Amino acid sequence: MYSEIHMPKGFKCAGVSAGIKPSGVKDMALILSEFPATSAGVFTTNQVCAAPVKVCRAHLQHGIARAIVMNSGIANACTGAEGIVAAKDMAAEAAKVIGCEPQEIFVCSTGKIGPQLPLGKIIPGIQTLFDSALGENVNDCAHAMMTTDTRPKVSVAELQIEGKPVKIVGFAKGAGMIEPNMATMLSYITTDAAVEQHALQAALKRAVDQSFNRISIDGDQSTNDTVLALANGASDTRPLNETSHDWGAFEQAMEKVCFELAMMIVHDGEGADKFVTVGVRGAASAADAELAARAVANSMLNKTAWAGTYPDWGRIMDSIGYSKAKVVEERVDIFYDDTQAVAAGCRSAVAQEDLIKVVSQTDFAININLHLGEGEAVVYTCNCTEEYVRINY
């Protein structure tokens, strides 16, 4: 699917089967920079976080990275001291193979919470990954990241910095347990631009806030969520920072890649067949708008109504009301796309059939105006069908 995509200069990637999953499915991935790369990261805010998240947070303080090694199938979460040792062993083995310091390796895991990592499979898998990374294997890398995903997720942006070509390539996995702030998702952003570490961290955080932190599939926040960015400078440009002439173009390109990956995650939501944009405006503040939008997006009553092509605006009113946002019932307007269902807090004169036409689409919007101020927010979500239950049973 992504066989025609080439990595930014100085980056290689690979995906292999290490036997963590059955039937030869690819379950380990590698992203390797031939040169020391500036690093940035954003992680789950869950108080229960996996061993690799703890190790990555520590390694991020080093500021320089050479590789990301990850496994799918087992999350290495809630695994105690043994899990920390296993995550550190993954980093140490990768560092030994590449010839760098362990703190220059990021390690990530995704999958079932509880079991210990099978290091007897993972350690040999690391060597196989580095052997495979002699070529570019974007498709294999993207597939190896997947758990309940139905398809791999890769995004590309190209731009000019100082008149020289620069590329950004991003990977992501995620389909379930998706709720801001981030979710059961991993994402890796690579670029051959040179970027100062503090600027890269700031740009990544802003991009994540407008993308991965604006999506919700099932309202469940995970233990392993990680977004990492590596900038290796192989394009031979001067290091960018927020005062650079080309900074705006670089930041826009990073936001584009993160946003496209986030939308791919929602479109691949577990058991979902409808993509829903929830927009709130006229709130007392941007924070209130976000509270209201998240409440609508996370409501299982709303998600199941959308699955059944049932335009139950009463459920939307209800979720707005308990959202903690300031709401004056008599001022609320609700639209399904451009079709008004609620005017001044009460049912509009629209025919039910017109609303059904909207929610029968595979892509539609719920637009809400609270008429209380200038606050606005958008959250991207999906419906919830019986298939979600089957996947998670």
Score class of each variant (00 low, 15 high):
A144K: 12
M146L: 13
S323T: 10
E386K: 13
A289F: 08
Y188T: 12
I98Q: 03
S72N: 08
A272C: 10
M185T: 01
T45F: 01
T128P: 03
D218S: 14
Q197F: 07
P102A: 04
D27W: 15
L372Y: 14
G170Q: 08
T277R: 07
D140L: 02
S285M: 09
T150E: 09
Q352S: 11
H62P: 02
Q340S: 11
D363C: 07
N367L: 06
L291Y: 05
E374L: 12
V55T: 11
I126R: 06
I122S: 07
W247N: 11
F335A: 07
K205T: 13
I217V: 15
K205W: 06
F364Q: 02
G114M: 04
V97L: 03
S216K: 09
V85F: 06
A86D: 06
A231N: 08
E196D: 12
G99A: 11
A365V: 05
K21S: 13
M1I: 02
G80F: 06
E386M: 06
M90S: 02
K205G: 02
E82C: 02
L129A: 01
E260Y: 06
A292N: 12
S155Q: 11
N383A: 13
E82L: 06
Y310W: 13
P165L: 03
G111D: 14
N213S: 07
F35L: 10
D312G: 13
I113K: 03
S285C: 07
C346D: 04
Q201S: 15
I366N: 10
R347P: 00
D338R: 09
K88Y: 02
F43A: 00
P115N: 07
A18I: 08
R331E: 06
P36Y: 07
A234W: 02
S187Y: 01
E4M: 00
A377I: 15
E162H: 11
P115Q: 05
V280A: 08
I168D: 09
Y2V: 02
K121A: 04
D363H: 12
E34M: 01
Y310G: 04
Q252I: 08
G375A: 09
S3G: 02
